[in-house]
Amino acid sequence: MSANAVSSRRALLGALTGLGALAVTGGVTSVRAAPSRLSKPIPSTGEQIPAIGMGTWITFNVGDDPVLRAQRTEVLRAFFDAGGGLIDSSPMYGASPRVVGHALAALGRPAGLLSATKVWTSTVADGPAEIARSADWWGVETFDLLQVHNLLAWEGHLETLFAMKAAGRLRYVGVTTSHGRRHGELARIMERHPLDFVQLTYNAVDRAAEDRLLPLARERGIAVIANRPFRRGALVDRAQRRPLPAWAGELDCATWPAVLLKYIISHPAVTCAIPATSQVVHMRENMAAMTGVVPDAAQRRRIAAAVSDL
């Protein structure tokens, strides 16, 4: 089990002990302990980030529709209210970055944001202008994390990003892939370049990253963002056809999405998972995965078995 999982458990136990003491003194009805939320360190700096972040593919691509923009703003509010941090987007995602920027402005630029977007152009020379445009859309001066999207023209873009980092205009550099594509190439990049982050697909059924990439990330001190945690929603749909197993209670999970997310973030190499949602209720369910018990190895096996049986 990871050190951060242990620290989170300790924090939870601490909170529960506190509650117990209050109960004894009769004060439990009026005082509620804030739930401890699982955070994990970015290995290259030790900075702790919340273990559940947020994706924006499709869900935030609503253009200038005022009704949908207002709804997405509420989704973002729920995200920050529940202690969210990392938001992931890309210039490939249509209006999503602009909608994120709109919602952040509407919420008064909440503290705790870890802004993460990507560079996605096959012409390396166009990278800086694309990044500047993204910053404008988000309403940020600089990004916390910039990632080369799907390894597109990665050599040239990495040069740009490392130069930006050296100049103090960027905090973290990363590379993304998804759907289990190009793991060999990603591993070679991880071995040869001082990346802060990698982003890849990892969930209870897409587990190819467990073989090589996740151990490599730990060895090289690279933070891991898990994308497509629900296989674009299909995993939740499949799971929700069955009742939630009784053992989910032992994991402090009230919903299937929380079970699925706990599987991901309890892997010691995973820094955060980034489910995307267009709904406040779903956001709350997802963020709940950061609280309570962190599954141990045996519990992780049980989740994987249950999900593969679905």
Partner: peptide, 22 residues
């Protein structure tokens, strides 16, 4: 090449709600 490596669903970045409301 990068575009060709995507699935159909990777290339449609909006959902039905956005589409119909448009």
């Amino acid at each position: 090449d990068a575009v060709l490596s995507y699935n159909l669903t990777d290339l449609v970045p909006f959902g039905p709600e956005t589409y119909h409301r448009l």
